[in-house]
Amino acid sequence: MSEDKVSGIYALFVGLLYMVAAVGEIAGFLQRDLIGGVMLMVISVVYIYGAKRFLQKKDFAFIVGGVFLSVIYGLLYLSIAFANYLEYLMGVKDFLLLRELRIEIWLMLVSSPLIYKVWKDIRKLKW
């Protein structure tokens, strides 16, 4: 199987994982966060659509879009975890590491092979 096909299938897999996580957040199986769940659904759709276009037309634009949103949300919740830790140190809040590591952070890690591929490809491009 070519490297491109593997990337496309992997993007589809990541998109489906995001969809499961989105349903989990909306239904409350994971941390209940209705709007957060809807946003995960958006990322999922971008990945799935990106995978389809990549497998059909070799157009990786929407995989770039999915990766972009994965990184934004992963870094967002990492920075929030850090902020919550600071509040814990100040004695304002409780802090439980497992609770702070939201699904968005794990999904960013799952997306890391795609992040690497996108980074490698777009680095060569001019603005």
């Binding site: 770039v64 777009i122 491009l125 001019k126």
Partner: peptide, 8 residues
């Protein structure tokens, strides 16, 4: 890159 980002 502008072309790609605009597609998205």
């Amino acid at each position: 890159l502008t072309d790609i980002l605009d597609e998205i």
